[in-house]
């Protein structure tokens, strides 16, 4: 059981660390925008979070694709 928990934590922090950091930064940015950014930002915080995360996924996968290409061509 501990091995399984460790694999999940390792996977989240190391294998997908950049994605996890990106998610946490996105959440903090949206929390700050919704809390201190006025009513327009607050009303649209959900859609802004969605847009940020979608962009994060695309950028992360683009980088992963190029990393994989470097690995197999090396």
């Amino acid at each position: 059981m501990l091995k399984g928990v460790w694999e999940n934590v390792y996977g989240l922090l190391v294998e997908d660390g950049q994605l996890a950091v990106g998610i946490v930064v996105s959440l903090v940015v949206i929390w700050a925008a919704a809390t201190y950014g006025g009513s327009a930002l607050h009303e649209n915080a959900g859609w802004l979070l969605l847009a940020l995360l979608l962009a994060l996924v695309v950028v992360n996968l683009y980088a992963a694709g190029h990393n994989a290409r470097h690995k197999i061509s090396a």
């Binding site: 996977g11 996924v57 992963a64």
Partner: peptide, 8 residues
Amino acid sequence: LFGLRWLR
């Protein structure tokens, strides 16, 4: 954190 990891 978990959902986007699965999706990726």
